[in-house]
């Protein structure tokens, strides 16, 4: 299982970042679900070793959604300033980083997952649909509405995407 260990060592940081965004900026929850997902992958490694990243993303999205359900549809934990990783660089970047995660936390979980997978993990629409187990049309509509909502939530801060 050396290659599983290699995968965990190599990809944990990137997957934690995805999980952090999927959990709306709750780092503790992100680390919990990532650890749970990776531990679950160990017993399935022979089956999933050809595309472990894709499996992990799907499992993280599901775990984040299930966590949300378990919380009885309460909003995500409020993002404490201390929980936001401070970005290196000037003040404005810190403000932007803070507000984008806050805005993301306000979105419905599927809409948030679509934006995270499309714009953070750079998945195509088809790959995002496969990961979330929905249709491409759903991805398109959730993307469009999610981006519009992000613009509303981000207030005066300019947010663009290509």
């Amino acid at each position: 299982m050396q290659d599983f260990e290699d995968f965990v060592a190599l990809r944990s940081q990137a997957l934690l970042r995805t999980a952090y965004l999927l959990c709306g900026g709750d780092k503790g929850a992100a680390e919990d679900i990532l650890q749970d997902v990776l531990m679950g992958m160990y017993g399935k490694w022979r089956r999933i070793r050809t595309s472990p990243e894709a499996y992990a993303r799907t499992a993280l999205a599901n775990a984040a959604a299930n966590r949300w359900r378990r919380r009885s549809r309460k909003p995500e934990a409020p993002l404490e300033l201390g929980a936001v990783p401070t970005s290196r660089g000037h003040e404005q970047q810190v403000v932007d980083a803070d507000s984008v995660v806050r805005a993301l936390a306000e979105l419905p979980r599927k809409m948030r997952a679509v934006l995270v997978l499309r714009f953070f993990d750079d998945l195509s629409e088809a790959e995002t649909a496969r990961t979330l187990g929905c249709g491409i049309g759903t991805v398109k509509s959730q993307t469009s509405r999610g981006l519009a909502r992000m613009r509303e939530l981000m207030g005066e801060q300019v947010l663009t995407w290509n």
Binding site: E5, V8, A9, S12, Q13, L16, R17, Y20, L21, G25, K27, E31, L34, Q35, V84, P85, T86, S87, R88, G89, Q93, D96, A97, D98, V100, V101, L104, L115, V116, F119, F120, D122, L147, M150, Q157, V158, L159, T160, W161, N162
Partner: peptide
């Protein structure tokens, strides 16, 4: 600010805790 850039900035310093692996 581009969305991707903002998301990357928001997670730039995130790393797993020591001993996570």
């Amino acid at each position: 600010m581009e969305l991707k850039e903002a998301l990357e900035a928001a997670t730039a310093d995130l790393d797993v805790r020591p001993g996570f692996v």
